[in-house]
């Protein structure tokens, strides 16, 4: 059986900082089999129509998180966005809220720095167990944070977040979801250390719970929930620190 093909009109944002004074759209007409994803169409353009087009991709299977772009205005993982679900005219732009490096490639330095600030690794106050002993973790404890481990840092949530768009000093959804993943981990002892940073002024409080981050997440992570739970943790931590006998 041969697959039906459709003629897709792609409007792709192009920007070469060395030549262009501002970004512009370029149109490509691509004959696409119905089972193609947008990433396949872009690869077709790159291989057959225009070798100068720049975009990021690697795995083509929703694991690497590098092919996040705006597809018809929606932050999407282009390897997971299928032609069959789209109209004949598709506009592809780089992720919103980020500076453009070139064409569909954005500068991610800011969020990389923010991910570091979230300290997404296990922090221990006690000595770690000896190397030949494993950390034991009951299944129920794993399920508390498991969904947050699914984040692939595609940054679609930052492109969707209106607060990050308004104020880039906001630490943002993915970094906070990653931090919350470790705060909820029964092996971790770094929650109050993380909250000192993440519940500070440009931390969790700037989130106004729009929830767009959770809606666009291609891995069904729920950063909005993580942030609200961290606000509760932050509020409790504040009282713990201020009440008499609390830690300074």
């Amino acid at each position: 059986m041969t697959l039906k093909t459709r003629q897709l009109e792609l409007e792709v944002l192009r920007y070469d900082p060395e030549k262009d004074s501002e970004p512009h759209f370029q149109a490509y007409s691509v004959s696409c089999p119905e089972d193609w994803a947008i990433l396949d169409a872009l690869n077709y353009v790159k291989e057959n129509l225009d070798t100068t087009l720049s975009y990021r991709w690697s795995c083509h299977m929703m694991v690497c998180g590098s092919c996040g772009m705006m597809v018809n205005g929606e932050p999407s993982l282009t390897c997971k966005t299928f032609i069959r679900d789209l109209p004949d005219k598709v506009r592809i732009e780089p992720l919103q809220n980020f500076p453009i490096e070139r064409d569909l490639v954005v500068v991610l330095d800011d969020v990389m720095d923010k991910l570091q600030r979230a300290q997404p690794w296990i922090i221990r106050q006690d000595d770690p167990p000896p190397p030949d002993v494993e950390y034991n973790q009951p299944r129920a404890a794993l399920y508390k944070f498991k969904q947050y481990t699914m984040c692939i840092n595609c940054m679609c949530c930052y492109a969707a977040c209106p607060q990050y768009g308004l104020d880039p000093s906001f630490i943002g959804p993915a970094a906070l979801a990653m931090a919350h993943r470790y705060n909820l981990d029964s092996r971790d002892q770094g929650k109050s250390q993380r909250l000192d940073i993440l519940a500070d002024h440009d931390g969790v409080w700037d989130c106004s719970f729009v929830g767009a981050c959770s809606e666009v997440c291609p891995k069904s992570v729920d950063p909005a929930a993580a942030i609200q739970q961290m606000k509760v943790d932050g509020a409790i931590e504040w009282w713990k620190q201020k009440l008499p006998g609390g830690k300074s």
């Binding site: 000192d196 606000k231 932050g234």
Partner: peptide, 15 residues
């Protein structure tokens, strides 16, 4: 770095 005072008003907001 420390927990911001915003946590207090947020607590009242949430409650």
């Amino acid at each position: 770095m420390s927990i911001a005072r915003k946590s207090v008003v947020w607590g009242l907001f949430a409650a």
